[in-house]
Amino acid sequence: MADTTGTATPETLAVHGEDGVRRRDFINIAAVSFAGVGAVAVVLPLVSQMAPSADVLAESSTEIDVGSIEAGQAIKAVFRKQPLFVRRLTPAEISQADKVDASSLRDPQTLAERTKEGHLDMLVTMGVCTHLGCVPLGAAEGENRGEFGGYFCPCHGSHYDTAARIRKGPAPTNLVVPDYEFTSDTVIRVG
């Protein structure tokens, strides 16, 4: 093809148009853009396939009957394939948790903020240490409950108090309270 930057003769005008833009430039940009959009469109499913699949998400809410838990007792349930601690606090544990000035804590929260109204004694938390994801001890009978009487993570020594708040050790935040609600007086639905 002839030099395109030269003066516009009638002959070149037919090919280039009046503004000096070649048909070929347009086709080139259009084709590359189209291919680029196509490539991005292909990346989307490739990335998205890694996300949790429908059957994994289908397990994302769990119903638990908490009626049979006695004060001072805890159960380990499974929520999203992770341990979930449900503990009925004793009056002593509640007062121990309320005694602490929440604003002095690493992750300031009161027990009332971590439980549902009218169910101050029912502490529902993930059994996943917020440091690196180990399962803390303390839910089962006879396990080490740490210096603050709640949970203790043996991996890197995080101590949680009776409201499962971080008090000592490397964990950055309190044990996570998942979204849940009481569907009746004795049943909770988590997730």
Partner: peptide, 17 residues
């Protein structure tokens, strides 16, 4: 983290990938 594992904890999806 959830995207890397394909779930909320390591499971079949994570093991396969």
């Amino acid at each position: 983290q959830v995207w890397l594992l394909g779930g909320f904890a390591p499971d079949n999806a994570a093991l396969n990938r």
